[in-house]
């Protein structure tokens, strides 16, 4: 049981990462691909935060009488990564809006031969 508890977080992270990866490569719709990319991204966040956790520790804010804190460094890295992530997602979605305008579709299998139209 302790073996499972030791690695459970990492396994779920791998599952989520692969779920996101599968959506990115198999989805037909570009918006869904972006959702997949976000799931992939969140799984990486989960990996970092899991590594930063210390059993019996508490949130890294100084409190009287507490000696064991979780590692604040992964928190800093991931906090900024989340905001940068939404900014890049916005750029991706803006590209999709332009694709819709240019090609009239956001379905991957409908792009064929559309280049001639433009």
């Amino acid at each position: 049981m302790s073996f499972i508890l030791d690695y459970y977080n990492y396994w779920v992270v791998v599952f989520l990462m692969m779920a996101g990866f599968y959506i990115v490569i198999s989805a037909n719709n570009l918006v869904k691909k972006i959702v997949g990319l976000n799931i992939f991204q969140t799984s990486v966040f989960m990996l970092y935060i899991s590594m930063g956790k210390v059993s019996g520790g508490t949130a890294p804010i100084v409190v009287e009488g507490v000696t064991q804190y979780s590692n604040p460094l992964p928190h800093v890295l991931i906090l900024t990564a989340i905001v940068v992530g939404v900014a890049t997602t916005a750029v991706g979605l803006a590209l999709i809006v332009r694709i819709k305008r240019a090609y009239g579709t956001v379905e991957e299998n409908e792009f064929d031969n559309k280049d001639d139209v433009i």
Partner: peptide, 19 residues
Amino acid sequence: LIFLNLDAVDVAFTEASVG
């Protein structure tokens, strides 16, 4: 919620408002 449970309160805050 998971971030909160793993002591990353600032990250949980950001994920809830951004994500």
